[in-house]
Design a protein around this nucleic acid. Sequence first.
DNA 1: TCGTATCTTGACCATACGGTCAACATTTTG
DNA 2: CAAAATGTTGACCGTATGGTCAAGATACGA
Lengths: 207, 207
Amino acid sequence: MTIASAPKKRTRIQAQNEAKIIRAALDVFSTHGYRGSTVDQIADTAGMSKANVLYYFNKKQDIYGAVLARTLDVWLDPLDEMNPDGNPIDELWQYAQRKLQMSREAPRASRLFANEILQGAPVIRSFLHHELKELVHRKCQVMQGWINDGKLAPVTPLHVLFLIWSATQHYADFDPQIQALHDADDNTLYHDAERTLKTILTRGLAP
Amino acid sequence: MTIASAPKKRTRIQAQNEAKIIRAALDVFSTHGYRGSTVDQIADTAGMSKANVLYYFNKKQDIYGAVLARTLDVWLDPLDEMNPDGNPIDELWQYAQRKLQMSREAPRASRLFANEILQGAPVIRSFLHHELKELVHRKCQVMQGWINDGKLAPVTPLHVLFLIWSATQHYADFDPQIQALHDADDNTLYHDAERTLKTILTRGLAP
DNA sequence: TCGTATCTTGACCATACGGTCAACATTTTG
DNA sequence: CAAAATGTTGACCGTATGGTCAAGATACGA
């Protein structure tokens, strides 16, 4: 970041091992939370010694921060794709659909954030208050425009986002509960989830 | 539980202190999770020594179990109140409304469960698979009946419950994120949440 | 091939935490 | 009021955990 800072050449082994650690750390942090995870666990999962893990990331917090940062942009990507010029109902439903798909394919990312926010968002607090707030504000203005044009039911845009987030992430974050209450296989689970969500969202948001 | 077991007379002080500990433990566990909480924290919050806390509850797990059990029935109570003979849309919306109100008034209870389930529901797993599953199954049959009678949109009852749960509990569990993205005061926040949720749910569920 | 930079780890340290215990204090009971 | 039961706590213990370090192994450029 600083001007003309050291080139910081990254060895092949460095990049390789850091990636391995991040992958392992996502596994561990997402299922046990920050305090519930140990560096030993991460080292074991990554297949290396604890000392070596701490050679690449000096502190446990650094590993956590790296995992969080690495996962953040991927997680928020779909929101940016919402097209102001598309059909409002379609755009919102497609966004919800993408989020539901992400909950299914990357449940650990979802749980990582859920844990972080449940603990008071100590690490990403400033990100939420600045970058995310800015992005959300932009998208809410788009939605408000749709409402003003009579293309969307008169709702509060921010809360529509909350509804989409909560409804979709629920399938990743509360998986043990969902598995307990559901008997059939996962295919019908996500199929039914999508159908139900589509019915309620598209009809609920229609002008 | 055993026949003619000891009467187990509970002292005034006993009941009083156990209650004080449970209250403190809900505070601590709900904000830090099980592993993130220490018996010392609970003792401090309760205003007594760690040794005394462990005099009433032998193990940390016992405190956790007690808090969870104590909070469970309160938390699930509204679901039981859904009236099969009422107007389906009204009943579902009133249920959602009660849940939203609970998220506002008892956010710690919500976060306690969120933490427990995120960690894989180690303690309440069996409860989910039996008592809760039974209750949910009954309620889903009622909703299926409504659908068959054409009084409700053709959705999957279980997923409607998931939607109501996630959308309402989100306001308790993800509070830091919500506070970050919201600028006005809490009154308009919950007012807008209720209005938006009502619009989408009632219109989305209408036959 | 040799020397240097990078990598790897077992052993170790300090601290935090769950839990125990013996000694003392308070309340209850007869 | 005295004895018994119940309540309270500081001091202590074993273990787990985050983090350090020195010493050795490996990769890599000249």
